[in-house]
Design a protein around this nucleic acid. Structure first.
Length: 466
RNA sequence: GGCGCGGUAGCCAAGUGGUAAGGCAGAGGUCUGCAAAACCUUUAUUCGUCGGUUCGACUCCGAUCCGCGCCUCCA
């Protein structure tokens, strides 16, 4: 089955192939670096990481660009309140962003770009729009005239006929011809950071950075543009308008949007007290890969209800897979290879791949893996799983982990080293042999306190870290 | 009001015109010096509700109820 995605632009699931057949040129809206990432942000970024990994799994090359919005109203306010320049203020949150996303094992895009490094590209784009008659100036600011782009609304599928200009209360302080017109370049305000440009002293509007940087690095038509659902309107709609009105070419072929998450069935918000950053969760003792698993396990187009029961379930599910991997690596299986089980491994891989090809159905993919794990565990218990089947099973896990990447535990740091554990395990084996169960249990307890769990099997004792 | 998404077991969740994946939790059992791991059995005659189409619908159509999102800054 072909790889396919739901495209917000057409509201249908479409087969996906990059325009040049091999390299996916993709742009995702990155963070506004004024705070630490919360789990809602992380859900979107995690879904994009799954997307990246799946495209690579399918043999495609990637040119993925993500922006860092390091100048906007909130940043200007917050940095002023903190008595810092916008650069000082945003650099700490930019660093924190990569630290946090690194912990949940998000791959870094091929190109990360900051808005403030691309003011020149934005100015050029705005000048191009002006040359095409799509802009107007008012009190030093430059606006995009929506009336100049008849297709406005095609992404969000909004119809604006009947809307009276100025009918909506405009919270923005700048004057506009039409309430829907949006600002490309904001005139300088006293005390605010600004750039001197041919457009006048000021700073960029919110939407222009994405168009300018996306086209700068990826050309006029991208294969994929992705973000959270809340960006569909007005952000992505405006990106389309300002890009296409300039180039007269489609800005992006596929638009992918990740649904929001809820927390314990409610919208996440600070006022409800259910607002969590990744740092909050890690402080509560959850492993970053557990958060990753939970966020990735629900398909990206479905709202995800984030609960503490859910994160607990994710933790247990990961342990099950780790135990399975441990069993594969430490057990002695009879010689030979079971053709039936080899076939079963191929079938599991096929199911896994079919699910992810189908608009990244992560829940379906996980189902394929767990079903395979249970069946092969049963075969192992029955003595039907043979030594020659180990490689195939490890391959199933490896394919899974290429996408989900949760099997390797995050190092807790400190603790006992492997040699010391092996020595105690050996001593305990001796004690058990001579039926000295008191000493045997003492060692088990000692290791448990150090976070090491011992498991006695017919092939000897194996250990793992908690 | 307009546009869009969703309602499947205690919780999370896949699926689809042919008779309900998977994970977690619960109960019982097997194995075990202890413990752990693993496995087995068990938990939806039923997929928000009501109609319709069909040999057959959870899956298609209509209506209806409920939840959520966007329409203004927002992942």
């Amino acid at each position: 089955m072909a790889l396919r995605f739901y495209n917000t632009l057409t509201q249908t699931v479409e087969d996906f192939v990059p325009a040049d057949g091999q390299t996916v040129r993709m742009y995702t809206c990155g963070p506004t670096v004024w705070n630490y990432v919360h789990i809602g942000n992380l859900r979107t970024f995690t879904s994009q990481d799954i997307l990246r990994r799946w495209l690579q799994y399918r043999g495609l090359k990637l040119m993925h660009v993500m922006n860092i919005t390091d100048v906007d109203d909130r940043i200007i306010q917050q940095s002023a309140a903190a008595g810092q320049s916008i650069y000082e203020y945003t650099s700490q949150y930019t660093d924190a962003f990569f630290t946090d996303t690194g912990k949940v094992r998000l791959q870094r895009p091929e190109q990360v770009c900051k808005a403030t490094d691309h003011i020149g590209d934005m100015v050029k784009l705005i000048e191009g729009l002006t040359a095409n008659g799509c802009t107007y100036e008012s009190e030093g600011s430059t606006y995009f005239r929506i009336a100049s782009f008849p297709e406005y609304g095609k992404l969000a599928h909004l119809v604006f006929e009947g809307l009276k200009a100025g009918a909506r209360v405009d919270s923005d302080k700048y004057d506009k011809d039409n309430a829907r017109d949006f600002v490309l370049w904001k005139a300088k305000k006293e005390g605010e950071h600004f750039w001197q440009t041919p457009l006048g002293d000021g700073r960029p509007g919110w939407h222009i950075e994405c168009s300018a940087m996306a086209m700068r690095y990826l050309g006029e038509t991208l294969d994929i543009h992705a973000g959270g659902v809340d960006l569909v309107f007005p952000h992505h709609e405006n990106e389309i308008a300002q890009s296409e009105a300039c180039t007269h070419k489609p800005f992006a072929r596929f638009w992918l949007h990740t649904e929001h998450l809820m927390v314990e069935g409610q919208t996440m918000s600070k006022s409800l007290g259910n607002f969590y950053t990744l740092r909050d969760l890690l402080e509560k003792g959850y492993a970053p890969e557990t958060v990753r698993y939970l966020l990735a396990s629900v398909p990206y187009r479905k709202q995800l209800n984030f609960t503490f029961d859910g994160i607990q379930a994710a933790d247990t599910a990961i342990k099950r897979l780790r135990n399975y991997a441990l069993r594969l690596k430490t057990s002695k299986f009879p010689e030979g290879v079971s053709a039936k089980l080899a076939e079963r491994a191929s079938a599991a891989n096929a199911q896994f791949e079919t699910a992810l090809d189908d608009d990244l159905n992560t829940a379906g993919a996980l189902g394929a893996i767990f079903e395979y794990v249970r069946e092969t565990n049963t075969a192992m218990d029955a003595g039907e799983f043979l030594a020659g089947n180990v490689a195939g099973a490890l391959d199933v896990l490896a394919r899974f982990d290429k996408v989900f990447e949760v099997l390797e535990p995050t190092a807790a740091g400190g603790g006992m080293d492997d040699a010391a554990i092996e020595a105690l395990t050996a001593e305990r084996a001796q004690a058990k042999k001579s039926k000295n169960f008191a000493r045997s249990d003492e060692i088990r307890k000692q290791l448990l306190e150090a976070g090491i769990i011992l498991e006695d099997t017919k092939d000897g004792t194996r250990w793992k870290r908690k």
